[in-house]
Design a binder for these strands. Sequence first.
DNA 1: AAATTCTCCTGAAGGC
DNA 2: TGCCTTCAGGAGAATT
Length: 271
Amino acid sequence: MPELPEVETTLRGIKPHFLGKKITVVHIRHHQLRWPIPQNIAAILQGKTLQKITRRAKYLLLTFNHGTLIIHLGMSGKLSVVANNTSFKKHDHCDFVFDKLILRYHDPRRFGAILWTDGDPLQHSLLKNLGPEPLSRSFNAKYLYRSCQHKKANIKSIIMNSQIVVGVGNIYANEALFLVGIHPAQSARSLNLVMCEKLVQAIKTVLRKSIKAGGTTLRDFLQADGKLGYFAQQLQVYGRKNLPCFQCQQAIILLRQQQRATYFCAKCQNK
DNA sequence: AAATTCTCCTGAAGGC
DNA sequence: TGCCTTCAGGAGAATT
């Protein structure tokens, strides 16, 4: 499940292979992702040179001189770099064929998206209302504090809300809240500025560490399976139901919030 | 307006 | 071994 560190790792992995290169042909084997891949995408891209690869939230933006390809990996999406004429496997839905290499999109659950815009991608309806990047300076204590005021919702749903801050998926929300000892069900408006500062720093720390871990596997990116980074990170609470807390040995609790699994330590994370 | 629930999908895991 | 059920989750859409 690609979280922000995986998307960033993917970006860094594909960039050196395709930047400034020309697409010769596009093959689509399955149009139906979260939204249909535009029918004319092959015609749009054929013969065009990739000018820029950037990221906004978990969206990868591949910019050409006449528009931008917007790619989201969803839950199970993966972009890989394979040699030309490499045979495709199940769920390899889309190939962007360049001179020597293929940028291949694989996505068993098809929650991802491949879209095209000929305007400013940041003004695309999917992107224009997104909150700040978590690692940017505009995501800071004051901002989070303001975003939490008058909010009845619990703090976990606030930090996972992409209109407030992007890129904090379920795993990292759990981990960051544990790091600062905040109970995931605590109401957002009850956090003071000091707690917001700690939480902001925890989110940044968790994401930075994970991106760094992802970076260590970059050299393997050409290999088809390329296990990405965050598994390397030691998770403190996520997926550890009933196992002893690393800090106090008390059993980690699993509860459900907004239909998402929340793992926390009742002793270390006080209400 | 804000908060919650629903939805897409497949593969893995668990029960019998 | 195999079939069936349940669960996982990103995030936009629909609903409350």
